[in-house]
């Protein structure tokens, strides 16, 4: 008789999550809704180098094989175009190799999801923000349970950008975009958690919900959510 290990049959489906929408390279593995383990690298431009090795390390440390995975969840954005493409390309390769479904999770949904316990306690709305360079952020408003209430948009942050929202009650601002709003969010109702960054840990809840309802992304056609159409300028200069 060999010692019986916990077999995949007795365990909840394993979902691998990849988050590369910001400068953080991050992977997590969930058994159903429960986090089994996660790895995060806080640095610049290391997604392409680190993402697959991090998946390898995390699986190894959890004594799992790639074939044990039931689905791959990937951050669809918005966020860094290059970062998102690294995440999506990596996710697609894994899904195709393992013949498992792809799940897409919005980067703002994942950020909001992480502060749901606090928001529920405070009865606060959640405004996750991802830095989109200059004074712009990708953002949307979520209720205390993490349900999105508004369209995802790119907002140029100004003096009174969130004045109405802040008048209506407590608001949790989270994510790397919240840091640059500190100045203008000087309001008693504003709770700024700009140290909360986008990581794969926050993707579990959404990924599990989508897994249970088989809300899978089409591997063939899935693209990151760039938010903005890329517009290149056709040169009108005549050379002669």
């Amino acid at each position: 008789m060999t010692a019986k290990k916990k077999t995949p049959e007795t365990r909840q489906p394993l979902i691998l999550a990849l988050e590369t929408a910001t400068s953080v390279s991050s992977v997590a593995i969930f058994a159903g809704p429960e986090l089994l383990g996660n790895l995060e690298f806080f640095g610049q431009n290391r997604h392409a180098r680190l993402l697959t090795p991090m998946v390898n390390t995390l699986l190894h440390d959890l004594e799992l094989q790639p074939a044990d995975l039931s689905a791959v969840a990937v951050s669809k954005g918005p966020g860094s175009y290059t970062g998102l493409r690294v995440g999506v390309s990596t996710a697609k390769g894994l899904c195709m190799a393992l013949d498992i479904p792809l799940i897409s999770v919005g980067s703002l949904d994942a950020l909001a999801s992480e502060v749901v316990p606090l928001a529920t306690e405070l009865g606060a709305q959640i405004v996750p923000m991802i830095d989109a360079r200059r004074m712009e952020v990708y953002t949307a408003t979520f209720d205390a349970q993490g349900q999105r209430l508004t369209e995802v948009e790119a907002v140029v942050v100004e003096e009174n950008s969130f004045a109405d929202l802040l008048e209506s009650g407590k608001v949790i601002f989270t994510g790397n975009g919240a840091a640059k709003c500190r100045e203008i969010l000087q309001h008693p109702n504003a709770i700024i958690l700009d140290h909360n960054l986008s990581t794969a840990r926050g993707m579990g809840r959404n990924a599990w919900t989508k897994f249970q309802t088989s809300e899978f992304a089409d591997l063939l056609t899935f693209e990151p959510f760039y938010l903005k159409e890329f517009v290149a300028i056709v040169s009108k200069n005549k050379l002669i």
Partner: peptide, 19 residues
Amino acid sequence: LGSLLVGTCFAKSYAFGLG
């Protein structure tokens, strides 16, 4: 770079997934 990244990242995870 951006073009190469797509093929590189796909190839890496595909090879890893297939072992």
